[in-house]
Design a protein around this nucleic acid. Structure first.
Lengths: 218, 218
DNA sequence: CTTGCTATTCACCGATCGGTGACAGATTGG
DNA sequence: CCAATCTGTCACCGATCGGTGAATAGCAAG
């Protein structure tokens, strides 16, 4: 093909364009950060290659190069999740003496409730978990539940549940309740007729939660 | 524009195409059915005009004409939801005498658990509710919670919760637990470490649920 | 049969999606 | 200095999305 006009465009006024430095590590981090931010703020619905690249301010090709596509990127998010949990939920008893299993579960429940309320990324992941059954989300889900189980185990210490109670099943119910109520509140400020807007509402929820725990474990 | 070649294609072998009768009412119903089927089977993720039209075997234009687009269609689904609930959850006490509020809540919890487990459409809607905050899903959500509240009210009869317990908050927790555990089981056969595959597993869940209810309401 | 009316289909639009191949500029090793 | 390598950009692909205007096919009354 004949070259007709190769006139180079020379901008008369040099735009002080941010000199994008060549730095793979920084770019990888920017991509990962953008992915987490996007997922936390927009949810999994419009979470895709194009959106992440846009958010990271780089070309989507780099996501393929550095993470092997969305799958790898999601996996990287999952890897982060461990420290994420450790950073956000206290690992000690807060100076309290947890004498009984009931004490423990009450504290765990309230801590988990507050932590989930404060963590949009976690919330989006939980919502994703119950909405889709792809390999991607399965990995994320595993990472999350593993981190959570580790936290619980560390907090449990040597306390054991009372005999005659299927603690695993009961606790699953309790944690399920917390997760659902927090998810519901995040999208509609209520759950099953219970308002969940101000702190007053959440006090009521926390009290109900305590009552349930104490009703089972004493 | 000059007509160059208007040769009409005449298929040599007449395909025995299903003679599509002209019947607006039937088409509307087919569209609504396809929408419910699609939502129940595929979830809200790929729920759109094109998919519904494909599922109903008609052109998407008809969805705009008859329902005014996806919004109207979703609203129609919501309208159906009332009878949907009434059809699937028993409205009487099943021959049992519910003497106490605890009896009532235990029965309601187990009925709701089974009903939700057996109803994929409801499950998808609940998952949708906690994943998105659009106007569409808000309408659906309202219809669902209204139907549910009505059912509970009918079942409640004259029973009143014990004094000293915030029944609204506690019940919200209980229903939240049921919803989340059923949603989780539908996508991953487990919830918070508790397996939820066979009937044995569900027995454990039901027992835990009863224990929680009895722990609060006696 | 002709003339409407209505149900239904068809063709096309612009936007966005995930994905890929080719290229440009900076860096580095010989 | 040149050549290879690495980082980053760009243009393009086919598919699908929601949405719309126009044409077509069947029915009913005149």
């Amino acid at each position: 093909m004949a070259v007709a006009n190769t006139a180079v465009k020379i901008p008369l006024e040099m735009p002080v364009v941010e000199k994008r430095v060549r730095n793979r590590a920084a770019t990888e981090q920017a991509i990962l950060d953008a992915a987490k931010r996007l997922l936390a703020e927009e949810g999994f619905q419009n979470f895709g290659i194009n959106a992440v690249a846009r958010g990271a301010g780089c070309d989507k090709q780099l996501i393929y190069r550095y993470y092997g596509g969305l799958n790898g990127l999601v996996e990287a998010i999952g890897t982060d999740l461990g420290s994420w949990v450790a950073d956000r939920i206290p690992d000690d008893t807060g100076g309290m003496f947890l004498l009984t299993y009931g004490d423990l579960m009450e504290r765990l429940s309230l801590l988990f409730l507050d932590a989930l309320r404060a963590d949009p990324l976690m919330r989006r992941i939980v919502a994703w978990e119950v909405s889709e059954s792809s390999e991607q989300v399965r990995r994320l889900s595993e990472a999350r539940s593993k981190a959570l189980a580790g936290w619980i185990e560390r907090m449990r210490g040597s306390l054991v549940p009372p005999k005659g109670v299927d603690a695993q099943a009961v606790n699953a119910m309790i944690f399920a309740a917390i997760q659902h109520i927090v998810l519901a509140s995040a999208v509609s400020d209520q759950c099953a007729g219970l308002a969940l807007k101000n702190n007053r509402d959440w006090e009521k929820a926390a009290t109900a939660l305590k009552r349930i725990v104490r009703g089972v474990y004493g």
